[in-house]
C-alpha cells in the first residue's frame, strides 16, 4: 500500500520503502515478523521496482519472497492511470515454491483508488521436494492457475493533498500476498508526511476464510509499520 499512495511528487527519481509486518494466523504457529525493503526508480512516466520480503522468528528464516515490477503512467479523465506488470516469487515452505505473473491497472481519482488486474499463479515443487521424488520420471511438478481476478478499492477519509490521512480498503492482494478473488482482505491504515521527505505509515490487515462460502471464519491478522523516503524530483 505504501508504494500505491505515492507521496510528494509523481516524477521523483527514487524512493525507498521499508516496513515490517507483525502478525499471526492459523498457519504461522506463533507471531511472525516480516521485514520488507522496496526500492523504486522513476524515469519520466516509467518506473521499475524491486521488493524483498524476509521472514524472521519461525522455522524458516531468511529471504521469503521477491517482487519485481515495472509500470507506465498516463492520464485518464485527468486522473493518473498506471499500467503495471510484476513477477512474484516466494518460498513459503521447504516443499513448495510459488511463482506469480501479475498485470495490474491502478486509477486514482480524488479520494478513491481503484485497482484491477489478473495474476497467474504457479504452485511448484521445490528442489528439495524434487530430490525426494527423484525415482519418479513422470512426476507432476507444478499446478498452474491461469486466471485470478485482482481487485482493490481504497478510500481516503481526508483530501489526498493533506499532510496526513486515513484510508480504508477492500482488496484481495498486497505486495507479496495475492489471495483468490473469493477471499477479500479488509484493511485500513494511516500515514503522515514529515517535512523531510519521509512518510510514516501504519496499517492493519484482517484475514478471514469462507466469506464466499457464506461461512466466515477468522484466519489471521497483521499490522504494518514503516516509512517511505523519496529523493527530490529532477
Amino acid at each position: 500500500m505504501g508504494a500505491l499512495l505515492t507521496p510528494f511528487s509523481l516524477y521523483s527519481q527514487f524512493s525507498q520503502t521499508n516496513y515490517i509486518d507483525i502478525g499471526k494466523n492459523y498457519v504461522s504457529q506463533s507471531v511472525f515478523v516480516k521485514p520488507v525493503s522496496s526500492s523504486r526508480f522513476n524515469y519520466n512516466n516509467f518506473s521499475v521496482s524491486l521488493s524483498l520480503e524476509f521472514l524472521l522468528g519461525t522455522q524458516t528464516t531468511g529471504l521469503s519472497a521477491l517482487n519485481a515490477g515495472m509500470a507506465y503512467e498516463l492520464l485518464l479523465l485527468k486522473a493518473p492511470l498506471t499500467l503495471g506488470f510484476a513477477y512474484l516469487q516466494s518460498h513459503p515452505t521447504r516443499y513448495v515454491n510459488e511463482l506469480q505473473y501479475v498485470v495490474l491497472m491502478t486509477w486514482e481519482k480524488n479520494r478513491w483508488i481503484f485497482q484491477i488486474g489478473n495474476n497467474t499463479r504457479v504452485f511448484q515443487l521445490s528442489r528439495f521436494a524434487l530430490s525426494n521424488f527423484s525415482d519418479n520420471e513422470n512426476l507432476h511438478q507444478k499446478i498452474v492457475e491461469y486466471r485470478n481476478l485482482m481487485y482493490s478499492c481504497t478510500y481516503l477519509l481526508i483530501k489526498p493533498e493533506s499532510q496526513w490521512n486515513i484510508w480504508v480498503s477492500v482488496r484481495n492482494f498486497d505486495r507479496f500476498l495475492i489471495q483468490q478473488e473469493t477471499n477479500p482482505l479488509p484493511a485500513m491504515g494511516l500515514y503522515f508526511d514529515t517535512q523531510s521527505r519521509i512518510r510514516l505509515f501504519s496499517e492493519i490487515w484482517y484475514q478471514r476464510a469462507g466469506l464466499f462460502n457464506i461461512r466466515v471464519n477468522y484466519f489471521g491478522v497483521f499490522t504494518r509499520f514503516g516509512l517511505i523516503w523519496q529523493t527530490s524530483s529532477t
Binding site: 498457519v27 513459503p92 499463479r121 495475492i178 483468490q180 477471499n183 484475514q207 476464510a209 484466519f219 489471521g220
Partner: peptide, 8 residues
Amino acid sequence: STSPLPVE
C-alpha cells in the same frame, strides 16, 4: 467457489 487461503 472459495478455496482455502494460499498461505494454508
